[in-house]
């Protein structure tokens, strides 16, 4: 009996992780498009809306890098929760960057979709 080779499950998990990592910067910038958000809100929305669950301690260095690159600004705000929160918002440069990144992502995704179209029929 011939077994169908699909590769070990870890290969697929690793590939999915790489794909998600590739889109992380775009996802964070896109989440900030409508409004300012603080770190934990960004993490929750990444998880809930894009299925991107990242180690929590790594979001702040990423946001700091974006700040250094002039893509976001930050401000401390006294919150109702009783402690200050650091909110991040897109700069004009950040808005231009996320639009460019989104356009590039869509072009890439559309090309891939065309390649994947024959798989929908299920026949070889």
């Amino acid at each position: 009996m011939e077994r169908e080779r699909t590769g070990p499950p870890d290969d697929l998990t690793g590939w999915e992780t790489q794909v998600r990592k590739g889109g992380l910067s775009l996802a964070v910038l896109a989440i900030l498009w409508p409004d300012r958000l603080y770190g934990l809100e960004i993490l929750k929305r990444l998880d809930a809306e894009a299925g991107m669950s990242i180690p929590e301690g790594t979001i702040y260095p990423l946001l700091n890098r974006m700040k250094t690159e002039g893509l976001v600004t930050s401000e401390w705000v006294e919150a109702d929760a009783g402690h200050p929160r650091k909110y991040y918002r897109l700069t004009e440069t950040g808005r231009r960057r996320v639009r460019d990144m989104a356009a590039s992502w869509r072009t890439f995704a559309q090309g891939l979709e065309r390649l994947l179209a024959p798989l929908e029929g299920g026949s070889r």
Partner: peptide, 13 residues
């Protein structure tokens, strides 16, 4: 700044 943000994160959490 980093420590303040980590503290804020834990308090939110």
């Amino acid at each position: 700044e980093t420590l303040a943000e980590l503290r804020s994160h834990v308090l939110d959490k």
